[in-house]
Simulated assay, not measured.
Amino acid sequence: MKLSTFACTSLAAIATLGLTTSAMAQWQPDRPINIIVPWSAGGSTDQVTRVVAPLLEEALGTEIVVVNQPGASGSIGTAAALAAPRDGYTWTANAIANNATYSVTGLIEDTSIEDYVVYLHVANVPVVSVNVDSPYQDFGELLDAMKMDSVTVGTAGVNSSGGMALAAIQEAAGEELNARMVTYDGGNPAVIAAASGEVIATTQLAVEQTEMIRAGRLRGLAVLSDQPLMVEGIDPIPPITEYLPDMPIAADYFGVFIPVGAPDEVYETVDQVWRDVIMSSPELQAYASDRGAVFAPSYGEDAMAAAMPVVIAEACARVTRGEAVVDPSEIGIDCPAE
């Protein structure tokens, strides 16, 4: 029996409606969601989280509260998120390498990347910058100074992107450098310290430094990449591989992370929001372009696959540098053979 055109159209409409209904968000939050940023206000994690939060707020129909809880290289706020009820109302935000390696450095016991459902939005790159009044005109001059004199470098702590960047530079240099790390409660105060002359240099992320570089208060010497950093209003910053050609580079992904254990509909709903809103967000793209980040949103298996190179690199670098108190293999990270 043949169906009429009307019947076929009606069935198609019903099928489409069914698909649309099944794809609609199933979780309807009935109170605000807290996103714990374990760093001070104004830093890289705080900046991008405050771009993403209003997008999530509109899509989920509930208030998103960004809570800054800094301390101990981000581990205090992260531990608070892990200790909160697993009901979908407490998330955290960070560089994924931090959350995945806190237990390796002993900052949080018995945790790994598997404690979270991962939602990534941008990749960030550290930049080596100096106070504009310093005598160092390029990274080679700064590196030579670090080999002979004591150079103070502001970071947000050993487990921050800036701290890990400085450690990676020391390792790639192949010799002991006289770079004395001065730690602050976040990337923003570390950058301000360099801009004010309190420290000579900083190795924090580009997104935390671009405004100070544009304003002529910092001089960008090198980006931890194999490509120059191109940001509107700033002269191209050369790649660090011009000076340390064998330095390994892994993209530093940032995102928001929901601890596992919440109802399935929480993750299914956020998956849909990430797919339909975040992955095409003009606001997030504009932020990345303006601040020198890479717009690279993903979720689910794609996010885990994108995150693992930097997770492995950072966890295993801790072992090489003698900073690990837990072998990465105990949390499922196998370091490459020497």
Rank of each mutant, 00 (worst) to 15 (best):
residue 265 E to T: 12
residue 67 V to F: 02
residue 26 Q to F: 07
residue 261 G to Q: 13
residue 185 D to N: 13
residue 106 G to L: 12
residue 301 E to K: 08
residue 222 A to D: 03
residue 263 P to T: 13
residue 245 P to V: 12
residue 124 N to V: 13
residue 34 N to A: 14
residue 191 V to N: 03
residue 166 L to A: 05
residue 168 A to G: 11
residue 159 N to K: 12
residue 228 P to C: 10
residue 71 G to Y: 06
residue 9 T to A: 15
residue 175 E to I: 10
residue 175 E to Y: 09
residue 262 A to G: 15
residue 241 T to C: 08
residue 142 L to Q: 04
residue 313 A to L: 09
residue 187 G to N: 00
residue 86 R to L: 14
residue 234 I to P: 04
residue 67 V to T: 15
residue 71 G to C: 06
residue 314 E to P: 00
residue 207 V to E: 11
residue 23 A to G: 07
residue 311 V to I: 14
residue 247 M to V: 12
residue 337 A to I: 10
residue 72 A to S: 15
residue 45 T to M: 02
residue 73 S to L: 03
residue 32 P to T: 10
residue 312 I to V: 14
residue 26 Q to L: 10
residue 181 M to G: 04
residue 89 Y to W: 01
residue 33 I to W: 02
residue 5 T to L: 13
residue 55 L to A: 10
residue 99 N to G: 11
residue 17 L to T: 14
residue 293 A to P: 02
residue 80 A to Q: 15
residue 71 G to K: 06
residue 19 L to K: 13
residue 244 L to T: 08
residue 258 I to D: 02
residue 223 V to Y: 02
residue 219 R to T: 11
residue 230 M to W: 05
residue 220 G to F: 10
residue 313 A to W: 04
residue 51 V to E: 00
residue 244 L to D: 11
residue 121 H to N: 15
residue 152 T to W: 00
residue 276 D to R: 08
residue 27 W to V: 09
residue 17 L to C: 11
residue 83 A to I: 07
residue 110 D to G: 08
residue 227 Q to N: 07
residue 289 S to P: 00
residue 119 Y to W: 02
residue 241 T to H: 08
residue 281 S to R: 01
residue 16 T to W: 13
residue 314 E to G: 03
residue 129 S to P: 01
residue 11 L to Q: 03
residue 7 A to D: 11
residue 325 V to H: 12
residue 101 T to M: 05
residue 96 I to R: 05
residue 282 P to S: 07
residue 240 I to W: 08
residue 17 L to D: 08
residue 179 A to R: 04
residue 156 A to E: 10
residue 301 E to H: 05
residue 212 M to F: 14
residue 271 D to A: 12
residue 63 E to T: 13
residue 25 A to C: 06
residue 39 W to P: 00
residue 72 A to D: 14
residue 274 W to R: 02
residue 80 A to N: 15
residue 139 F to E: 01
residue 32 P to F: 07
residue 238 P to C: 07
residue 148 M to T: 15
residue 245 P to R: 05
residue 59 A to T: 05
residue 85 P to V: 06
residue 199 V to R: 04
residue 113 I to Y: 09
residue 265 E to A: 12
residue 145 A to K: 03
residue 127 V to A: 04
residue 267 Y to F: 09
residue 328 P to C: 02
residue 258 I to P: 00
residue 333 I to D: 02
residue 164 M to S: 06
residue 107 L to H: 09
residue 81 A to H: 01
residue 300 G to Y: 06
residue 180 R to D: 14
residue 264 D to P: 03
residue 330 E to R: 15
residue 87 D to W: 06
residue 58 E to Q: 14
residue 128 V to T: 12
residue 200 I to Y: 01
residue 140 G to K: 07
residue 229 L to V: 08
residue 338 E to S: 15
residue 1 M to R: 14
residue 284 L to N: 03
residue 125 V to W: 05
residue 181 M to R: 13
residue 59 A to H: 07
residue 319 V to N: 08
residue 50 R to K: 06
residue 189 P to S: 09
residue 72 A to K: 12
residue 335 C to P: 13
residue 335 C to Q: 09
residue 255 G to N: 10
residue 181 M to A: 09
residue 226 D to C: 00
residue 290 D to G: 03
residue 307 A to F: 04
residue 258 I to N: 07
residue 293 A to V: 04
residue 26 Q to A: 15
residue 313 A to N: 13
residue 186 G to P: 03
residue 46 D to L: 07
residue 161 S to L: 10
residue 211 E to S: 15
residue 35 I to H: 06
residue 57 E to D: 10
residue 276 D to F: 03
